[in-house]
């Protein structure tokens, strides 16, 4: 795969990742993006996109592709990683089949966000050189992780991040520190992606409701905090 032949969707998804627009992608698309990131050329392309983006913004970039691959490996190795809510209660049965996809997607978001955030810094800073979540080991995941790499991940996690806990079986497969860090990141990012998407749906609906239900702009009164971050103001 190269620039010319790379799947158009993958190019758009990478572009979305660099533009902090991952919230525009569905979980399916994020999953596909993560899968595409296993291709070396895709990562090369990502690096070039990131480099171009960062040069334009005056930063220096090193996307740290091994980080992406490593997390992907870790997620794939986990056989049945379902999450529970922050209250610690059991997920409804009907949600469970979605859990693994949700986790993978959210980690993809987290990692791409993380790579984007972390690697637009000076070349002298510490770089991740090995996966954060490494190879499968005896049915679980060996979270043998260098301190540098773990720090890199932790830098991407806001201190007030929402903490989700994994199912008991899955929890045992992680060392405490790495598990807590990665799962906190995943849940928070997943929640953000969903919330952003629903917010966009709501605003889109209100725009068209205001045109089609004969009540002018009144429908916009339904949202106390009108979404204006995509403003085109001048």
């Amino acid at each position: 795969m190269n620039d010319k032949t790379m799947n158009e969707n993958t190019g758009q998804w990478l572009s979305a990742a660099l533009d902090d627009e991952l919230g525009d992608l569905s979980e399916f698309e994020i999953h596909q993006l993560l899968k595409a990131c296993e291709e070396p050329d895709t990562l090369d392309t990502f690096e070039r996109y990131a480099l171009a983006s960062s040069v334009l913004s005056g930063d220096v970039v090193n996307p740290g592709s091994s980080l992406l691959v490593g997390v992907r490996t870790g997620i794939e190795a986990e056989p049945d990683m379902a999450m529970t809510g922050s209250t610690g209660g059991e997920r409804p049965q009907w949600l469970r089949p979605l859990g693994r996809v949700a986790v993978a997607a959210s980690v993809a978001v987290a990692v791409v966000f993380g790579a984007n955030m972390l690697d637009t810094s000076t070349p002298d800073e510490v770089r991740p050189t090995s996966p954060v979540l490494a190879q499968q080991n005896g049915g679980g995941i060996d979270t043998t992780t260098s301190a540098d790499n773990l720090n890199v991940v932790r830098r991407a996690v806001p201190e007030n991040g929402v903490t989700y806990v994994s199912d008991g079986a899955a929890a045992g497969n992680y060392t405490a520190a790495a598990n807590e860090t990665s799962m906190t990141l995943s849940a928070r990012q997943l929640q953000q992606v969903r919330q952003q998407r629903m917010r966009r749906y709501l605003m889109y609906h209100l725009e068209h409701a205001s045109l089609n239900n004969n009540s002018g702009m009144l429908p916009f009164a339904r949202v106390s905090n009108l979404e204006t971050e995509t403003a085109t103001g001048h």
Binding site: W94, L98, L202, Y204, L206, N213, V223
Partner: peptide
């Protein structure tokens, strides 16, 4: 003419949910 709704279709499986944002 009085009530309006919007249907969004995404490829892929996501979490099922039903809740209201205000009356929406």
């Amino acid at each position: 003419g009085l009530s309006t709704f919007t249907v969004f279709v995404n490829r892929g499986e996501e979490v099922s949910d039903s809740h209201r944002e205000g009356s929406t």
